[in-house]
Design a protein around this nucleic acid. Structure first.
Lengths: 345, 345
DNA sequence: GCGCCTTGTGTGACCGGTCACATTCATGCC
DNA sequence: GGCATGAATGTGACCGGTCACACAAGGCGC
């Protein structure tokens, strides 16, 4: 609450200049740490800056200098663990490079809605990072005008999504493969699968890895159950699988789904891992503390976010280029929820 | 990929103007939907805009018009359910008002670090929303220069945090009170408490509500166990409580902590709710699907975020003012994890 | 004692928009 | 027919910075 009551407009460098008895250019030199300013002058200007509460106008800076030092993240979700962690990684790296971080949520995968959101993000200026793990994200990545600097966080590097845009990725296919191999190695005849909503109309990379492992092992390939996001989706899908006594192992598209599946099995009186083994993806913070604790595949989302920013930074600043490769190998974490199948009667 | 190879600077309204054979002001009128532009002219300009891929420069717009239509959210965390949900609510409301949303993470509560982050956020222009649920956030709210438009999302409206800034809040104290009353009403002699890290040096509002309920009921007041964030913190705290046979009811500062406490009790062979009852806060998505499902207090974080933005919007645009009151009443959700205490031998 | 470089400072144009005002032309009214 | 009115468009200044360049004063070599 200032005493004057009405909000006066903030001080500009010219205000500071007159207050300090110098030209605006000298003020500009001071705030930019230009060497050739006399010490006494510098102090006078700094005093004026402090007194007037001068704050450099970001818009004017961006307009005049051309560089915006901003990145906007487009994502379909901000609350799911994986998405939130990627965002966190991006923010970390951006902060270190003193970039501003903006977010835009793709609430619907609808063509027009996505286009509008991309437009908004583009208007914000600066670079773009699009999390293209789902249809909305993939569509958004495709809708980004060609002249804008953009990096995609994608599920699979090959294939149409992303076009010729730079991208980063985690090896979700490998993760799915590893997890499935683990379950098969315990003696399960096959592994059922509750899939996350996929980025393409076909199947997610995780699902593809699962399929590959089954095929290599010569195991039967049950049809994957399409889950919605979140524990509720897992629960719904799990109720169906729990009713089938032939199901002894379930690979869940992420840990959230796994929570729902665990609950569904519990409700149907099937024990984990006694009757059914469960594995998830992501190693969310609570997964280790569930009962039973969850076997899962850990993916370095935060590192992925950092890599995405680093890549964008390289593109925008046209300096060091970073090779777009998987930033980390997925790590299988075996816990209580997976074990050998029940002995056949 | 444009054929020229080198990135040419984006088209401005003057480029569009010459291409369409009109003045730059006419272009400005077209992009602002000014009524008095001849239909044929408008079409000509729109065609030129389309052809040149013109995009209105956000910085120039903000600089010239004064209005920035941006809000920066300062928060200590983006992944915890409550924080993430508030952010989601803010984004939703901001998107509806076509505001850009920026985020700044307060990684440390250290005075200098917080000040630097506030500075960065202020530089970004536009309004600020500070989530002041923790020491870093409270400190940040206090460090915001007086002349900047800011709204705090606070734990308790009274008291020093926030100063005379506008704020929104959820009635965490009431939530703590309700949950404790519920547990007492089941017949527990008293309720133990694992607290979330508090916003002040004293106790969180949730803890205060718990205390009040115990006092009113004349129940003994055990010292609250200070937990860190997340399931790991809950687990550590839970191991201590699980060892004490006198403990029959535990109120956890949030659902994440509750997951850890549940696990700790399980490891110590104490059943829930048979031996010990558990309640949490927040009603996180997975809480309903845990085994046992978690009794908790639901708080409308998304609505809180929307309200925070609405308030800021009112402050910035100096139009409709919204009364800063609790946006929703906390709702107790009773599930499997709470029940009567075990019968004394 | 003159030119020359260095240090310190100021001036004008510019970034890409908006705003206030001026101008042109067609129309309606008396 | 003269004039006010309104629609359609253009001109100049301005927002708050940066950049390129000009310029004054002092130190140094010759």
């Amino acid at each position: 609450m200032n005493v004057t009551g009405h909000t006066r407009r903030p001080a500009s460098i010219r205000d500071v200049a007159t207050a300090a008895g110098v030209s605006y250019q000298t003020v500009s030199r001071v705030i930019n740490d230009h060497p050739s300013v006399k010490q006494s002058t510098r102090e006078r200007v700094l005093a004026a800056i402090d007194e007037l509460g001068f704050r450099r106008n970001a818009s004017a800076l961006a307009l005049a200098s051309g560089r915006s030092r901003a990145v906007t993240v487009l994502t379909a979700n901000t609350t799911h663990y994986g998405y939130a962690s990627i965002l966190q990684g991006i923010e970390e790296a951006a902060r270190a490079a003193s970039y501003a971080v903006g977010i835009g949520v793709l609430e619907s995968a609808d063509e027009a809605a996505v286009a509008a959101e991309v437009e908004r993000a583009a208007d914000a200026g600066g670079g773009l990072i699009v999390i293209a793990y789902d249809p909305a994200g993939v569509r958004a990545l495709g809708a980004v005008p060609a002249e804008l600097p953009v990096v995609g966080v994608v599920e699979t590097p090959a294939g149409p999504p992303g076009g010729d845009r730079p991208w980063v990725w985690t090896d979700d296919r490998e993760a799915g493969y590893e997890a499935t191999r683990h379950l098969l190695s315990l003696g399960h005849e096959t592994v059922h699968h509750v899939a996350i909503p996929s980025s393409t109309r076909r199947t997610s990379a995780r699902t593809a890895g699962w399929q590959q492992a089954l095929r290599e092992a010569g195991a039967p390939e049950p049809r994957p159950v399409q889950g919605r996001w979140g524990p509720a989706g897992g629960h719904a899908a799990g109720l169906g699988l729990a009713a089938d006594p032939a199901v002894t192992a379930i690979l869940c598209g992420n840990d959230d789904l796994a929570v729902g599946v665990l609950r569904a099995l519990h409700e149907c009186g099937r024990s984990v891992p006694g009757d059914v083994s469960i594995a998830g993806f992501d190693d969310a913070p609570h997964s280790a503390y569930l009962t039973p604790s969850l076997t899962t595949v850990r993916l370095d989302f935060t590192g992925l976010g950092r890599a995405a920013f680093a890549l964008l930074h390289g593109v925008v600043e046209e300096s060091a280029q970073i090779a777009p490769h998987p930033v980390s190998v997925p790590a299988l974490v075996v816990r209580e929820s997976s074990g050998p199948p029940p002995v056949r009667p």
